[in-house]
């Protein structure tokens, strides 16, 4: 009978994404053995770090073929290990790697799946997952039955707790072969930024139409850097070309849930509110006292961001 919870480790060049630790912490609640599954090249050394956050075991598939993530080899490896070890639940981070791998694997296994989940209830043979649909305008509980139960979990929603488990290394036989590879990765161009990634940031400072141009971007950047924050954008400032689409928060951009979200010059269109209103604290600065953003803001300032933000910056520097 299938048993145990697997957490698929999301890493690049040995650097583990935080969502992996969130999932290991979450998996403690299911009362079953927790295995971190790490597929890569030269990754065995990650075991102690994975143990610290809750991995009883660390299942390692180490080979040159896994040096760079490619769907075909990873799916073949996962399928072979699932067959051998028969896990009950497999969790992935809802990252570009996690959702790519999980979707193709789910279809290969012929199972249903819930993706981008914000809560999970696991019982034998059944998973009930909460998903924020319409970018958070509604919540759906999705039930998946059978084995294994697959789900991808949104980054930043599960709390990280250290539990200092053994992290005992189990070496898996390498099952993927060159014939499984159908994507030829030519190049990786890392984003050079001193700021955190938008979907992982504790603080996000976003700008909208009120930025009026590149000068406005500089204003929010100064505040962001003071707070160690990521920069975000509304559709208006992306469409105007002041910030790239990768910064867009909302239904056609990214959904964020930081500890603090500062909306500067953003009116708060419903599609933007959907992407950020689950933030713990929200501050808004807008010249229009009737702007919808104020309906979700914990602290709203009616005023011109070009005048208000420099004062905030000066005060914070004191």
């Amino acid at each position: 009978m299938a048993k145990g919870t697997w957490v698929v480790v999301d890493q690049r060049d040995g650097k583990i994404r935080k969502v992996t630790f969130e999932l290991l912490s979450e998996a403690q609640k299911y009362g079953d053995e927790v295995t971190a599954v790490v597929i890569g090249k030269g990754v065995e050394g990650l075991a102690p770090e994975l143990g610290k956050y809750g991995a009883d075991k660390v299942l390692v598939a180490d080979d040159d073929i896994f040096a760079v993530y490619n769907t075909g080899a990873f799916v073949a490896q996962m399928a072979a290990m699932i067959k051998e070890y028969d896990p009950a639940v497999i969790l992935f981070g809802h990252t570009t790697m996690g959702r790519d791998l999980a979707a193709r694997l789910a279809q290969k296994l012929g199972v249903g799946m819930a993706t981008d989940c914000i809560a999970a209830e696991i019982s034998p043979g059944k998973g009930v997952f909460t998903r924020a649909i319409y970018a958070g305008k509604a919540l759906a509980k999705v039930q998946v039955e059978g084995t294994p139960i697959l789900a991808t979990i949104r980054a930043g929603v599960m709390e990280v707790v250290e539990s200092n488990k053994a992290g005992e290394v189990v070496k898996a036989a390498v099952a993927a072969t060159a014939g499984d590879v159908y994507q030829n990765v030519k190049e990786f161009i890392p984003t050079i930024s001193t700021r955190p990634e938008l979907t992982e940031a504790e603080v996000v400072v976003s700008g909208g139409r009120g930025l009026k141009g590149p000068e406005g971007v500089k204003v929010i950047e100064e505040l962001a850097d003071l707070l160690g924050a990521a920069i975000g954008a509304s559709r208006a400032s992306v469409d105007s070309g002041w910030l790239g689409h990768e910064y867009q928060v909302g239904q056609t951009g990214k959904v964020v849930n930081p500890n603090l979200y500062i909306a500067a010059g953003i009116s708060g269109a419903i599609q933007h509110l959907a992407g950020m209103s689950s933030s713990k604290y929200i501050a808004a600065i807008n010249t229009d006292p009737e702007a919808p953003i104020f309906s979700v803001a914990d602290f709203g300032v009616v005023g011109d961001l070009f005048k208000v933000i420099p004062v905030v910056v000066a005060e914070l520097k004191k």
Binding site: G112, K137, A138, L139, A140, S277, V301, V302
Partner: peptide
Amino acid sequence: SKAKIIELALPAAKQAGKKIE
């Protein structure tokens, strides 16, 4: 279908906080 929606809800409306001018 293998994954079934068993419940739908709307998120709790966020309360507006302080607004200053």
